[in-house]
Amino acid sequence: MQRKVSLFAFLLIPFLTMVLPTSAESDLSSSYNQLFMLLSLVSFAVLLLVVVLWVYFMYKFREDNEEVEREEIPHSTSRKLEVGWTAVAILIIIILMALSYPILFNETTAAEDPSNFQNPITIVVEGTASWTWKYHLPNGTVIEPVVVQKDAVDVHFTNITLTKDQAYTFIFFNTAPFIHSYFVKGLNIKMDVVPGTNNSLTFIPTKVGANELLCAEFCGALHSQMRGWVNVEEA
């Protein structure tokens, strides 16, 4: 009984540390990329294992093969196998949880340590009923969309320029009778823009460049045509 309690505590404490927000590095996109790479490594290893065994068994135990010994797997071995791979699977899952939970909370603050945010500039981002984006800047200016005709299809671009290493808070606003989603892959941002709710996001862009904005929640006829550029420049 005592052993069970202490084992539980042993596992619980790291689990709790995992799920509570931590203060760590400032740029989230490198954490995201690392996580993606790590998961890819793990996945590749699993896939490789499956495919290798698959090919090997298909070859070795094909019906033409007379030489191979076709023995039954003894009960004790089969039990060990089943427990074994279940335990390995659980372990992999725990590792993935440990690596991903600390940054899980930061979806609304697209950086790991919110206390890094000093004086964020607040911009209201509107998803409109005419399938365009609009930015309402703090000084009262509204950035309007520009229509570009691409290959007989009209695309609405709304472009904004942000300053590198400056914190921004985007508050999302939608009066359309459908949901939009603000998706800028280059900045690791995606947030649904839901009518009646004001989701928000705080982040610091750390790399200079142009990032494409795409709508990522099906909103009707011009869903694929409401886009823009989020350009990040030096201060």
Binding site: L39, E107, S181
Partner: peptide, 14 residues
Amino acid sequence: MYVNIVPLDITLHD
């Protein structure tokens, strides 16, 4: 598995 991890889901959802 990728899309279950919330930070990765940001890029991959939808």
